[in-house]
Simulated scan of single mutants.
Amino acid sequence: MEKIAMIGGGSWATALTKILSENGARVHWWLRAKDDVQHLLSTRHNPRYISSVQFDLERVRPTNELKEAVKAADWLVLAVPAAFVQPVLDGLDRDALKGKRIISAIKGMIPGRNVLVTDYVAERFRLAHTCVGVVAGPCHAEEVALEKQSYLTIGSPDAKLAEDFSALLRNRYVKAEAAEDLDGIEYCAVMKNIIALTGGIAHGLGYGDNFLAVLVSNAVQEMRRFVQAVNPQPRDLSGSAYLGDLLVTAYSQFSRNRTFGSMVGRGYSVKSAQLEMNMIAEGYYAVKSIHELNKKLQVNMPITAAAYNILYERIAPAVELEILKEKLR
């Protein structure tokens, strides 16, 4: 029986715990809130996210003790918002992850450091990149709970690690494949949130499907330019781990980044939108990280620039979208 430490109590952590435990793994599930752990132990449901899912407590062990969860596991799956990765992992010794395999299920970057989550973990715990991987969609946690057909890609420079974790995820409604393009998959997962957020802003302003289609088409080109600049290698962005993840995030009703952007487009301030959602939209932080990285790279990124100007320079969304629409083709 594979032993997995699931770090995080959100919707994606809940969905992955469902998949892994039902496939026979033992999941040591770390949640920050003691009340959430007690609720899971007494009712077998996560009280905050995807509460319809019922867990088998013989396979799922909720806990507030991070060190114990990590020590008991062979795999560590990170599923907290990127902004919380450092505060959470700072409680672990530098050798705590020695001999373990690490999967990031986070589609964001470490704020302030502007580095990918897998890069931060490898550096912080002195791990080779062959010990880390990333899980990418297209896959919404809410549809996993409903057991709708879903597809996942596990990216890692270690083909065996990627295939082994893919095997842990496969079931009748989840297809999972391995890939070697760790950086490309992870950067695209970050950028698709920026695109979805910008599409949400456009939606909130009253732009229609025609504009969103053009925005997404241009976004693929923007992603290609940036990823090739930061990590040049042959890659096909039409694959589901790239384009598929972008599409589901840009169009789906379950996309928190699209929802957040739509609220901003309708006139909410950033803070009021964050408070009302009560969920983290990774795109908000990702915009700043990618913008900072691009100061050196100087890649043509009009969509990212527009999102940054709206969210951080406080330029009116209507004004910035008027400028952006003239740059799209």
Rank of each mutant, 00 (worst) to 15 (best):
K192V: 09
S262V: 06
L205I: 05
A307C: 08
V117K: 04
V134E: 01
A122T: 09
L297I: 07
E186T: 07
A196D: 09
K100C: 05
V319F: 11
K71R: 13
R266D: 02
S51N: 14
D183K: 12
D209T: 13
A189R: 04
G112S: 11
V144A: 05
C131I: 00
K327W: 04
K107A: 08
D181T: 08
Y173L: 05
S156K: 00
G9P: 02
R32M: 11
Y187W: 15
V299L: 03
G91I: 00
E313R: 11
V190W: 11
S21D: 02
E320C: 01
P157N: 13
V60C: 13
H129P: 00
P157L: 12
A241P: 00
V248Q: 06
I310T: 02
E313F: 08
G155E: 00
A213D: 06
Q274M: 14
T14V: 05
K296I: 08
A250Y: 07
I106Q: 03
E276I: 06
E22R: 06
Q274R: 12
N231G: 07
T17P: 00
E320H: 00
Y120Q: 02
D158W: 04
A316T: 07
S51V: 02
N46K: 08
S150A: 14
N46Q: 11
H28I: 02
D245H: 01
A69Y: 11
F84P: 02
S166V: 03
I303W: 08
D119P: 00
V144S: 04
K160H: 13
A189V: 04
A273G: 06
A5W: 07
V264Y: 07
P87H: 04
M6F: 13
P157K: 08
G244N: 05
E180D: 13
E292G: 00
I4V: 15
R266F: 01
D245K: 03
K107L: 11
G206L: 06
D36S: 15
K67L: 11
M1R: 06
S255V: 09
G244S: 05
S255G: 08
D245Y: 06
L215Q: 07
L40D: 12
A82F: 09
L321Q: 07
E2K: 13
T259R: 09
N294S: 12
T14H: 07
M277A: 14
A281V: 09
A141R: 04
G261E: 05
S269I: 03
S42L: 10
S217K: 12
E282G: 08
N231M: 10
A273V: 03
A136G: 10
Q149L: 15
M109Y: 09
S52K: 14
P62E: 01
G24V: 05
A305W: 01
L197I: 05
V230H: 02
I323L: 12
I194D: 04
R126C: 14
A105E: 03
A176R: 09
K34A: 15
G208A: 10
K107V: 05
G108Y: 03
T153C: 13
S269R: 01
H291C: 00
Y268K: 01
L237P: 01
A281L: 03
V80E: 00
Q233M: 13
F260K: 03
A25S: 15
A213P: 00
F55V: 11
V319Q: 14
V264L: 12
A5H: 07
L57C: 09
S255E: 10
F211K: 02
I110D: 05
I323E: 10
